[in-house]
């Protein structure tokens, strides 16, 4: 039950109290969260659709992937920052919400996948890599980030 203690502490912390008390501020954080979700999704799709050969076939996929990754990192940073604030306001509710945990699992998977697997692979010359591996990575990436967003939306519904 240590984890629950942490969520109780988070909700009673200054951050949690601020998130609870100021509805307007909370809404702005949610909006920033959505804005960066759009940016993150855009950069993920840009890279993955290029790897799948749907977009920008005549632009080297290394170029597309490297450019997209820069903004992916910006989007991820805003998403994490605003996300912590959003959780803080309803921490105990989140603790008891199964979709919150699905989302966190998918998010942890997504981040680990990007930085430990996808980037080390895409840092190499894509011409020398097997196309089917690049395509599998793209499908896995779209699936994992879709899951993060979809389970995230469902936190509010369940």
């Amino acid at each position: 039950m240590e984890l629950l203690t942490f969520f109780e502490w988070l909700e009673s912390s200054m951050l949690g109290q601020a998130a609870k008390s100021y509805g307007g501020v909370y809404a702005m954080f949610q909006s920033a969260h959505l804005f960066s979700m759009a940016l993150l999704g855009g950069t993920v799709l840009l890279t993955d659709l290029r790897l799948l050969g749907v977009l920008f076939r005549d632009v080297p996929s290394n170029v597309v992937a490297d450019n997209a990754h820069k903004w992916f990192k910006v989007a991820l940073a805003i998403i994490l920052g605003t996300g912590v604030f959003m959780v803080a306001g309803v921490a105990i509710k989140c603790y008891h919400n199964s979709f919150f945990w699905y989302k966190m699992t998918a998010l942890a998977t997504g981040i680990a996948f990007v930085f430990a697997v996808k980037r080390p692979l895409l840092n190499q010359d894509h011409e020398l890599l097997k196309p089917w591996i690049l395509k599998s990575v793209a499908i896995a990436s779209i699936l994992v980030w879709f899951t993060v967003a979809a389970t995230g939306r469902w936190i509010g519904f369940s």
Partner: peptide
């Protein structure tokens, strides 16, 4: 329907943001 509306932000605004950022000299 609501989730589809929100999640499609990633396709619509995601692509639009990349175009806008390109015009501003910030990507690609």
């Amino acid at each position: 329907i609501e989730s589809t509306h929100v999640l499609t932000l990633m396709v619509f605004l995601g692509m639009l943001f990349v175009i806008d950022l390109r015009m501003l000299g910030l990507t690609l």
